[in-house]
Simulated scan of single mutants.
Amino acid sequence: MIHYFYENISPISDEEKRAKWIEDLILNEGKKIGSINYILCDDEYLLQINKEYLNHDYYTDIISFNYCKGKNISGDIFVSLQRILDNSSLLKTKQEDELNRVLAHGVLHLCGYNDKTEEEQRIMRNKEDYYIGKY
């Protein structure tokens, strides 16, 4: 199940459509759908999470906490809508595409993909692009 929670921001549109899209992504990756909580928030809220749990003192667009067991995909995914809007403007992308990229990115991490090396980043970006095209 996909759940959405909001901290200091307004809800996003098309929650059900996005949930179905994320579920399809998980199944397409050969995994099972567990419980995924998207906590959508502002920059300051996510900065506090970053400091408290990861000891990082910088802004980010997403932080994923992995609770997966085997093929069962579960986790908490914190997303800064403020950062997504800023990145969309900087990258000259549609806000909806940037939001979907970040939502997919978090779940792809839960599915086992990383983005530490250039090769991992390339694979992650290709996966994001592929799934954005399926939205």
Score class of each variant (00 low, 15 high):
Gly112Lys: 11
Lys94Tyr: 07
Glu128Gly: 02
Gly30Asp: 08
Glu120Gln: 14
Leu99Gln: 12
Val79Tyr: 00
Gly112Leu: 11
Tyr45Gly: 01
Lys69Asp: 10
Phe78Pro: 00
Lys32Thr: 06
Thr60Tyr: 02
Glu44Leu: 11
Ile33Tyr: 03
Ile12Cys: 12
Thr60Asn: 09
Gln48Ala: 10
Glu52Tyr: 13
Leu25Met: 04
Lys32Cys: 05
Ala104Asn: 14
Leu40Lys: 03
Ser10Pro: 04
Lys71Phe: 06
Leu85Asn: 03
Val107Leu: 02
Lys116Trp: 12
Leu91Asn: 06
Leu81Cys: 05
Leu85Ile: 05
Ser88Trp: 01
Cys41Gly: 02
Leu46Tyr: 01
Gly106Pro: 00
Ile9Met: 03
Tyr59Phe: 14
Glu15Asp: 12
Glu119Phe: 14
Ser10Glu: 14
Ile63Ser: 01
Ile2Gly: 02
Ile39His: 00
Ile22Leu: 09
Asp24Leu: 09
Tyr45Lys: 05
Glu15Gly: 11
Tyr6Asn: 04
Phe78Gln: 00
Tyr58Lys: 15
Lys71Glu: 10
Leu103Ile: 09
Val102Asp: 07
Gln82Trp: 02
Lys71Asn: 13
Tyr58Val: 13
Asp76Ser: 01
Thr93Arg: 15
Ser35Val: 11
Ser13Asn: 09
Lys116Met: 12
Glu16Gly: 03
Ile26Pro: 04
Ile39Gln: 00
Trp21Arg: 05
Cys41Ala: 03
Met1Arg: 05
Gln48Cys: 08
Ile77Thr: 01
Gln95Thr: 13
Glu23Trp: 02
Phe5Cys: 05
Gln82Lys: 03
Ser89Trp: 01
Glu7Lys: 09
Glu44Trp: 06
Lys134Glu: 08
Lys20Gln: 10
Leu46Val: 02
Asn114Met: 10
Asp57His: 13
Ile9Cys: 09
Asn28His: 13
Asn8Ser: 09
Tyr6Leu: 04
Asp57Ile: 09
Leu99Phe: 11
Glu118Asp: 11
Ile73Gly: 05
Ile77Trp: 00
Ile33Trp: 01
Lys116Gly: 15
Arg122Glu: 12
Gly70Leu: 06
Ile132Asn: 08
Thr93Asp: 10
Arg122Asp: 08
Leu54Tyr: 14
Lys127Asn: 10
Tyr135His: 10
Ile39Asn: 01
Lys94Met: 06
Leu27Arg: 15
Ile36Asp: 00
Leu25Arg: 01
Leu47Lys: 11
Ile9Arg: 04
Glu29Met: 11
Ala104Asp: 06
Asp129Val: 15
Lys69Asn: 13
Leu108Pro: 05
Gly112Met: 10
Thr93Gln: 14
Ser13Trp: 05
Ser80Trp: 00
Asp14Lys: 14
Asp14Gln: 12
His56Leu: 09
Tyr4Phe: 15
Lys51Arg: 15
Phe65Val: 09
Ile73Val: 15
Glu96Arg: 14
Gly75Ala: 00
Gly112Cys: 12
Cys41Met: 09
Arg122Pro: 03
Ile12Pro: 12
Asp61Leu: 03
Leu47Cys: 06
Leu99Gly: 06
Gln121Gly: 11
Asn126Thr: 08
Asp76Asn: 04
His56Trp: 06
Cys68Phe: 05
Ile36Ser: 00
